[in-house]
Every structure is written in C-alpha cells, then in structure tokens.
Computed example of a mutant assay.
Amino acid sequence: MRQFYNRLLRLIWGLFLYAVGIVVTLNAHIGYAPWEVFHVGFAKTAGISIGTASIIAGAVIGIIALLLGEKLGLGTILNMLLIGVFLDLILGFHIIPMASSFAFGIIMLIIGLFVIALASYFYIGSAFGAGPRDSLMVALTRKTRLPIGVCRGMIELLAVFAGWRLGGMFGIGTIISALTIGFCVQITFRLLKFDTTEIQHETLGVTYKMLFGNKKEQLNEDEISEDC
C-alpha cells in the first residue's frame, strides 16, 4: 500500500504542477497557450470559470481517447477534476505575478511550458492512467507512429483554432506555445529517459480490486475461520 500512496502523491503533485505551469503561461500575458485559448474561449462563451471549462473539456477529450483505445484510470479522472480546481485556486489567490514586460513574458512562457512538460512526466509516470489530453496524445502516437512531439503539436494547434473561434485570446505567446510545447515535452521526456508508450497504466478496475479486493478476501477468510 505504501507504493500505492507514493504513486498517488506523485499523481497529485504532477496535477498541481501542471496547473502552476498553466497559470505561469497565462500570466506571461503575451497570448495564452493553446489549451488556455480554448478554455478561456469556452469559459467566456458558456459564462463559467476557466477551471470549470477545463473540467468539461477534459471529460469530452477523455471520452474520445477512450474510444481510441486508451484505458481509463484514476489518474484520468483526477486529471479532469483537479487541474481545473487547482487552476481556479491559484488564479484566485494571485500567487504567481504578472509579467511586467514583453521580455519577461517570453521567459515566463518558456518556463511555464517546461513546468507543464515536467508535470506530465510526474503524473503519467504514476501509471494511474494519463490525463485526457495526454491520453489523446499517447493514443495518436501509437496509432500514427509519429514522434510524440509532433502529435502533441497537432493537438495544440487544433485547440488554438477552436479556442480562437470561440473568442479566446490569441497572441505571439500562443504561436510560441503551439510550436514549442511538443518539443518541450519531447526534450523533457528524453532527458529523463521516459517513454510514455512503455508505461502500463492501471485501470480503475485494477485499482478497485487492489484497494477493496484484498479486504473482501480477508473478510471471507475470517468468516471461514469462525465457521471452523
């Protein structure tokens, strides 16, 4: 069980770190990163918070990834929920400062993208199931055999277009993010010698059996002992 809780802690830390990376890119104030263009556009259109928009979008993308053959896990569900919650909390408390100049904004943007890439390493590596967006990235990588950076880049560009159509903020930072996020992920994973296709993600069924199956077996053994 200790290993399970260590993995769970790694998952939650990765999700929090991901939200931090997103807010850093938002506060760079030179154009939102691709998914945030979509989330902000969706939030404005629907009249909801950015975090809530992220949760709804994650749920829809998760279903698409599931249809493409990716497994649903505890990490997938927590990704859908916690990143949105962490986003609203971090934005609400104004923890991360706003960029005071364009040059500082560029630096913040790049840092934010690498924080997001590092966060992906943590929560995908927990093997509880990749988040909806990364599940889609992994699914496309397996289906197309293209480099993971290329697949991530294609997804980000599609999110930018949809977000722009919904009224999301588009700027130079958006272009930089769309063109470099895939390579930030690829560089980070390569430096950490991390291959997402080798991760055997744990499904919800396996997690449930591990947490509650042993208890049921123990109860059955106790009942048998009492009968004897």
Results as ranks from 00 to 15, higher is better:
Lys71Trp: 08
Val206Ala: 14
Gly73Tyr: 02
Phe4Gly: 07
Gln186Val: 15
Phe194Ala: 06
Arg165Lys: 13
Ile61Asp: 02
Leu204His: 09
Ala162Pro: 14
Leu66Glu: 07
Asn220Phe: 05
Arg133Asn: 11
Gly31Ile: 01
Val115His: 08
His39Thr: 09
Ile55His: 00
Thr45Asn: 15
Val150Asp: 01
Ala103Tyr: 02
Gly105Ile: 06
Leu191His: 07
Ile124Arg: 00
Met80Tyr: 03
Asp227Tyr: 15
Thr45Ser: 15
Pro34Ile: 10
Asp88Lys: 05
Leu146His: 08
Ser177Pro: 06
Phe38Leu: 11
Ile64Ser: 11
Pro147Met: 07
Tyr208Ala: 09
Ser120Ile: 09
Ile63Phe: 12
Leu109Gln: 00
Val24Trp: 00
Arg10Gln: 15
Met154Lys: 05
Gly163Tyr: 00
Leu8Gly: 13
Asn214Gln: 13
Tyr121Ser: 15
Ile12Val: 12
Gly21Cys: 13
Thr180Met: 02
Ile63Glu: 05
Ile172Cys: 00
Arg165Ser: 14
Ile22Glu: 01
Arg142Tyr: 09
Ala57Thr: 09
Thr197Ala: 12
Val85Glu: 14
Ile22Thr: 03
Ile61His: 01
Ala178Asp: 11
Ile124Gly: 04
Gly73Phe: 01
Glu156Lys: 08
Leu118Ala: 14
Ile106His: 04
Phe4Ser: 03
Phe170Pro: 01
Met98Ile: 15
Asn214Ile: 10
Gly149Val: 02
Gly47Val: 13
Asn79Tyr: 01
Met169Thr: 11
Gly62Pro: 10
Ile63Gly: 09
Ile22Tyr: 01
Val60His: 04
Gly213Thr: 12
Lys209Trp: 13
Pro97Ser: 07
Gly153Met: 11
Ile48Glu: 02
Leu82Ser: 14
Gly205Asn: 11
Ala57Cys: 10
Arg10Lys: 15
Leu191Ser: 08
Tyr32Glu: 03
Ile56Leu: 13
Met137Cys: 12
Glu217Leu: 10
Phe170Glu: 02
Val185Ala: 14
Thr144Ala: 07
Ile77Lys: 03
Leu89Ile: 14
Asp134Thr: 06
Arg145Val: 15
Ser120Gln: 06
Cys184Arg: 00
Gly75Trp: 00
Glu223Met: 12
Ile106Phe: 08
Gly153Cys: 11
Ala159Ser: 11
Gln3Tyr: 13
Arg2Met: 12
Arg190Lys: 06
Asn27Trp: 04
Leu26Gln: 07
Ile48Tyr: 02
Lys216Val: 13
Leu219Lys: 10
Val37Ile: 08
Tyr5Glu: 10
Val206Leu: 11
Ala103Ile: 03
Trp35Val: 12
Ile95Leu: 14
Tyr18Pro: 01
Gly51Ile: 09
Leu157Trp: 10
Thr144Val: 08
Gly84Glu: 00
Ala159Glu: 06
Leu82Met: 14
Gly62Ile: 11
Asp227Pro: 11
Arg152Cys: 07
Lys44His: 12
Ile116Gln: 06
Leu78Tyr: 01
Gly62Arg: 07
Ala46Glu: 05
